[in-house]
Design a protein around this nucleic acid. Structure first.
Lengths: 219, 219
DNA sequence: CAGTGTGAAGTTGTTCACAGCA
DNA sequence: TGCTGTGAACAACTTCACACTG
């Protein structure tokens, strides 16, 4: 299967979610000087079935060598091109509170082709300041700057009560993809990409497992 | 199907992940004074198939009324008991950096039965201080305090290079469940619950959708 | 009827089994 | 023998179809 076909029909989401893991793992192995890496080896470290690894990597277009594995350097480059990690997108973040600030400083975004170039808020105390080199503007400046810098991707880290309104504004200003960190279920038109990252979903999963475990142990 | 059976055989993970959404939605509707709520109505707001909603809610043990829906108050209580939201677990957080600090202040944890009661770090400047009322201790205090307070759940927000070591220590100190916010693939014994919350997996999904969209538009 | 509740069908993702290869 | 690569079996989750109910 050729890599370009996937661009059209879309890659399975679980595969996409695993790509950063592969990338991180392969990158480290490259730094350690490894030349070849096999799917079973990757699978063992990442706790994945080796067939899964093989199928995932096939999407990037690399070919492995029987008995030897994948050439580390080729594989790393394949993942990066396939995922677009080396093509940097500029991103705006709205809501320079605690979480927003932490996100701006989050390490490794650039490694994945993303650069937060400006933050926005409506708190006069914050406007004009910088968060780790990233300037904070009043939300009013969003539209013009987005146009100027051709920004299509926005992150929302506002208080929940502002989330929907901010999303509506962003969309009216030409944003195509929104990454929402608030617990709000933001409603967007069908053509807009929205990704909700809810801490609570993950919390629910782990709490459920923990309670399940504890209830079994108490039998 | 009875609620208790699920405790034993485990609930589908997607269902668990949706529970906080239902909870949040139903809670708001209760505040707004709604008495009954139907699965189709919930589905429309949360962009879920109505059968999905029905099946998910069935796990909590509630019964709905044909033509009317679910009694809001009963439903809310059912979700909370089912998920254990009203039984508070004390949690420790290791790594009082930017992200850790943001997490400590994250609103709504208590609503989901979780309370971060202490943070730990190895930076002398931070020790003795408080983050929104939560005391910061030296990591050396972890073991004794965990025993004292019967803490079984730990959050890791350290720099990546310390993540594995912190996890190993936590486990040796009796922690049963770890919520890992670092990009590291932490290795744990099989009986330990680990939940990796990687910002990068979500980032990869949205970037992939965005690139896909843009590549189609440029045809 | 407009909803619940559920078995059956459909879809998606994972794992198995094995052919081919060096 | 230990790997890649892939079609087929399997498992998990979602959606459909419909009987049932007030």
């Amino acid at each position: 299967m050729e890599a370009n076909e996937n661009k059209i029909k879309g890659i399975p989401e679980p595969t996409v979610r695993r790509m950063p893991q592969y990338h991180n793992y392969v990158k480290n192995k490259k730094i350690q000087g490894e030349i070849y890496l096999s799917a079973p080896a990757i699978g063992r470290s990442l706790r994945l079935d080796s067939t899964q690894v093989t199928k995932d990597l096939a999407y990037t277009g690399v070919a492995g060598k029987p008995r030897i594995g994948y050439h580390v350097e080729t594989l790393l480059a394949a993942i990066e091109t396939f995922m677009g990690f080396n093509q940097i997108d500029h991103v705006f973040l709205v809501g320079a509170g605690n979480f927003g600030t932490a996100l701006v400083g989050y390490p490794g975004f650039d490694e994945y082709g993303v650069k937060i170039v400006a933050a926005f808020d409506n708190d006069p105390k914050k406007i004009g300041s910088k968060i780790r080199g990233v300037p904070v503007f009043h939300i009013d400046k969003f539209r013009d700057l987005a146009q100027e810098m051709n920004v299509k991707f926005g992150i929302i880290t506002t208080p929940p009560q502002n989330a929907q309104q901010v999303a509506d504004l962003m969309i009216s200003w030409g944003i195509l993809a929104i990454w929402n960190f608030t617990p709000v279920n933001i409603q967007v038109p069908k053509h807009i990409i929205i990704q909700n990252t809810s801490i609570y979903a993950n919390l629910a999963v782990i709490m459920n497992k923990l309670h399940h475990k504890l209830s079994i142990e108490n039998l």
